[in-house]
Design a protein around this nucleic acid. Sequence first.
DNA 1: ACAAAAGTGTTCGATATACACCCATGT
DNA 2: ACATGGGTGTATATCGAACACTTTTGT
Lengths: 220, 220
Amino acid sequence: MPIRVTVDIVIFTIQSGDLQVLLVRRGIEPYKGRWAIPGGFVLEQESLEQAALRELREETGVTDVYLEQLYSFGDPKRDPRGRTVTVAWFALVDAERALQAGTDAAEARWWSVQHRPPLAFDHASILDYALERLRNKLEYTTVGFQLLPDKFTLGDLQKVYEAILGRALDKRNFRRKIGLLGILKPLDELRSEGGRPARLHRFSARKFEKLKDKGILFPF
Amino acid sequence: MPIRVTVDIVIFTIQSGDLQVLLVRRGIEPYKGRWAIPGGFVLEQESLEQAALRELREETGVTDVYLEQLYSFGDPKRDPRGRTVTVAWFALVDAERALQAGTDAAEARWWSVQHRPPLAFDHASILDYALERLRNKLEYTTVGFQLLPDKFTLGDLQKVYEAILGRALDKRNFRRKIGLLGILKPLDELRSEGGRPARLHRFSARKFEKLKDKGILFPF
DNA sequence: ACAAAAGTGTTCGATATACACCCATGT
DNA sequence: ACATGGGTGTATATCGAACACTTTTGT
């Protein structure tokens, strides 16, 4: 009996200030009816990353997202049907793209990471690990920007950080630190949402690459 | 043709202030005669970590070392004999244990990471990645202590940091920061080595666990 | 006595944190 | 006019970086 290799993808998004994860309901045994992290077998001719991207596209229809390898899980008993090793990934999609994902398949939906259902297999461990990685990465990289659409307000950005870190941040300190990085381009465009209109910004990946090369990272 | 799953282990040590990696010379094709990272197939009934520990023991005779999963590599062309996915790990062994490792098998020896030979397969990428991870981890964890024997001097410890980071550190700043952590127990024992004798210290893992729980990490 | 490594404090700049009020719009 | 979210500066504490001399041993 050979070992079968799969990929599983923990897909996060932010919906109205709440960190959510995409889960699919299993239609077959084992764990029939339980919710699970989307994934599937690695095909003969594709790399692990290609497999993850393919599953992501098949399950959610989304493409062109942030994707990072997380960890590989291979406990001999993790799948009762037989020996599997899964290479887990985590992906970040912005709120706009997230909408199409949840509606595509009837048996896929977004769950708040706070109020998630019991999961199949060892998927609870995988999700916990992904969450931990996301929190850590938030502090020294710009992954947070991946959860926002092209144009966003500084309030939007702060909400992303607060949702992931699970605590409130000071508005003035937050803006100063973001400003210091100089990786946001303020646009000549405002968005009104129940109060004073907020300026929209765009993430400038080009400026960020320069910072990375110099070893300057995120100071949260 | 199923995918075959292997583990490869990048084993680091420090010998007289130089960061070294254990490599084995391949006796068969492909890449016969080339140096490679030690590794082998994952067996039917063992977890990935057990497989890594087993290979580590078989190749080096060492046990009870620091071992951490690194990344999984699965390019379809990475092994010309057929499709493989390897789960790469990195291990740290102290100088005393390292001695027995290099001598066990005639075709295994330590190489300075600076002057390493060309490697088989995609092992150069794996080694580079391990080195990057080690450097990063050094800055916010206590992995550095894993490269030292039970008793060591502060000079020994500083040399470990300098060898891995590849730059000189200020002795006073280094000692202050280590001292602030309060995870070293000074012993009533000195070691003389060509100058004023140095006090030996021991790493107190118990104290460190408390720090970790509070989220206090290494400030290098 | 001298060579060789151990040991020890202070100053300064940068960064993180705490904290409160006015502004522009919609209703 | 009032409710709602947007926008702005200063003071303090903490942390990291730079920097030089004395001490203890072996030869």
